[in-house]
């Protein structure tokens, strides 16, 4: 029987030491990393036959729209659902993301990303959910740009690869910055443009970007993150000058 070999970095909790375990699971055509993790859960034995526990990992949609199952597969951060075994070199090496605290095994806590969305006020402050008639018109061109930005699933790939994003840096990172551009582009969101720009002009904001531009290379949704950042550079610069000369 054809099998697939996995090497998985495991860790019971944040304050215990990580260790590696190897697994061998039956091969099926078209299988992905998630299939193998389920196989391990059904038969929790290491490659040398030792009983172990099922691996902990996060997943939900399994079609790369929820962002949950992000991990490091063979050294590169990505969603494990779209990591097809046929396209990977064996042993397939799975590790948790390194920029977020490990919860267990491949699970990490990405709360910091959601907090960043709060910081940058990533929402349209509508007056209420009552029937207030139609929304503002939007050109198809602006819709294109907005749609590309609004596909961000807060998966954290852009942050995992960012050399400026880690536990000793307060940087909010590309994902949240790009959301500022999204909301400032919306006809209603534009009304709070300056307020939102203010949220990224302090420490940990846009100025902490180091322009390594890894974010845009790994974004699974092909979001033009570096364009967003450069655009916000322009907007914040113009806003700062305006504020200075009018002060």
């Amino acid at each position: 029987m054809k099998t697939v070999r996995f090497k998985i970095k495991r860790q019971q909790s944040l304050d215990t030491a990580p260790y590696w375990e190897e697994f061998e699971v039956p091969y099926r055509p078209g299988m992905n990393v998630i299939t193998a993790l389920y196989d391990i859960a059904k038969n929790p034995k290491t490659a040398d036959g030792k009983a172990t526990s099922a691996v902990a990992w996060d997943a939900n949609c399994l079609e790369e729209v929820c962002g949950a199952c992000t991990m490091i597969v063979n050294g590169k951060v990505r969603q494990s659902c779209s990591a097809l075994v046929d396209a990977l070199q064996q042993p397939i090496c799975l590790e948790p993301m390194t920029k977020f605290p490990v919860v267990r095994d491949l699970r990490v806590n990405r709360k910091r990303m959601f907090d960043a969305l709060k910081r940058v006020k990533a929402w349209i402050p509508i007056d209420g959910t009552y029937d207030l008639g139609e929304g503002p018109k939007l050109s198809p061109q602006d819709q294109h740009i907005g749609y590309a930005l609004s596909k961000c699933m807060t998966c954290g790939c852009c942050l995992e690869v960012c050399p400026q994003y880690h536990d000793r840096s307060p940087f909010v990172g590309a994902a949240a910055l790009s959301q500022v551009r999204l909301f400032n582009l919306h006809p209603t969101g534009k009304m709070q443009e300056e307020e939102r720009l203010e949220t990224i002009m302090g420490e940990g904001g846009i100025e902490d970007c180091g322009n390594a531009q890894n974010c845009v290379r790994v974004c699974p949704k092909d979001i033009p993150l570096t364009t967003s950042i450069a655009d916000l550079n322009r907007k914040t610069t113009a806003y700062a000058l305006k504020k200075f000369f009018r002060s």
Binding site: I126, L138, S139, P140, Q143, G146, Y147, S150, G189
Partner: peptide
């Protein structure tokens, strides 16, 4: 129909016609 309008006001990036509808 009002639900669509509400979602639109919240910023859902619905596809548009040339007129912006």
């Amino acid at each position: 129909p009002a639900i669509i309008d509400l979602l639109d006001r919240m910023g859902v990036m619905f596809n548009r016609t040339d007129e912006g509808n």
